[in-house]
């Protein structure tokens, strides 16, 4: 196992009689933003939760070459931080108090003196400077999501510590954000990876994925349908089959980026979905 990667082999997760993940192999490299995409119920979040050890699973997960099951919570917390999809806070914490909780595991930076100022720096990074004394419960959904992102950032502030990359796991980090903050947060994740850390993000927005991801894993029905560089994975055929609707990938010359556009088929969404799902079984 590489010392700078997250690797998982043969992950299998069952919820009762339903198999949510069916023998998934996964890997993500430090220095890259790895996106996990796929339709609702394809197992994206379950894969992330299996990687972070939040759901009972068979198969093994390694982080920087060490099996996660053999690490204590505090050791894991110094290697990786996890941003959940949504979270409730049981008591009326202020924004600053909540972000400070990110320092619980210690070792956010190599320099202990810098720790005290990290929460403020992280809040500024997610566009929430000046929110320190607001109560978290009074914030909007998007603001709350960014407060939690700041808390997660504080936990592993330096992307590389003592030569080992650290990992950000983000579950739909931009789902509640407006377009401006979507870009800020994606850029932040991208920068974290550029600085030598690793980022694994569950993404719904294919265009943001195309714009920022270095590596994409496409899931469908609990299995990996495709995995590789964005231009290899985000293809008309695979996307349309996986998502059950007609999707067209465009690469307009002036920008060179990739856009994914849905194609109107003249049918109602349900008909269209039903039709495409019928064709959509990839093998």
């Amino acid at each position: 196992m590489s010392e700078t990667s997250i690797t998982a082999s043969k992950l299998r997760v069952r919820f009762g009689r339903h198999t949510a993940l069916n023998g998934v192999d996964f890997s993500a490299q430090a220095g890259q933003l790895t996106a996990i995409v796929g339709p609702n119920g394809s197992g994206k979040t379950t894969l992330l939760r299996a990687l972070t050890g939040d759901v009972a699973h068979s198969g093994k997960v390694w982080i920087n070459g060490r099996e996660t099951a053999s690490l204590r919570p505090v050791e894991l917390a110094r290697l990786r931080a996890v941003l959940p999809q949504s979270g409730s806070v049981a008591f009326p914490f202020t924004v600053l108090e909540l972000v400070r909780l990110g320092l619980t595991a210690g070792l956010a930076t190599a320099c202990p003196q810098a720790q005290a100022t990290l929460p403020q720096a992280a809040l500024a990074r997610v566009g929430l400077a000046g929110f320190e004394s607001r109560l978290v419960q009074d914030l909007s959904g998007g603001e709350r999501q960014r407060v939690h992102l700041a808390r997660v950032l504080v936990q592993i502030w330096e992307p590389v510590l003592e030569g080992a990359p650290r990992w950000l796991f983000l579950d739909e980090p931009v789902s509640a954000l407006d377009i401006g903050h979507q870009l800020i947060v994606m850029q932040l994740a991208h920068d974290y990876a550029q600085a030598g850390g690793g980022v694994v993000a569950v993404m719904h927005d294919l265009n943001l994925t195309a714009m920022f991801a270095d590596h994409v894993t496409l899931l469908g029905a609990g299995q990996v349908r495709a995995s590789g560089a964005p231009q290899e994975v985000l293809t008309d055929r695979d996307l349309s089959a996986c998502y059950g609707c007609a999707l067209r990938t465009n690469t307009p010359p002036p920008f060179g980026g990739t856009w994914i556009l849905p194609q109107a088929t003249g049918q109602s969404p349900s008909q269209s979905a039903g039709l495409s799902l019928g064709q959509g079984s990839l093998s």
């Binding site: 919570p73 996890v82 409730s88 049981a90 619980t104």
Partner: peptide, 17 residues
């Protein structure tokens, strides 16, 4: 304090819940 965010989050923050 960490547990106020839920057990999973507390454990991600390094707490042996």
């Amino acid at each position: 304090d960490a547990l106020a965010l839920g057990e999973a989050v507390a454990s991600h923050m390094g707490i042996d819940t």
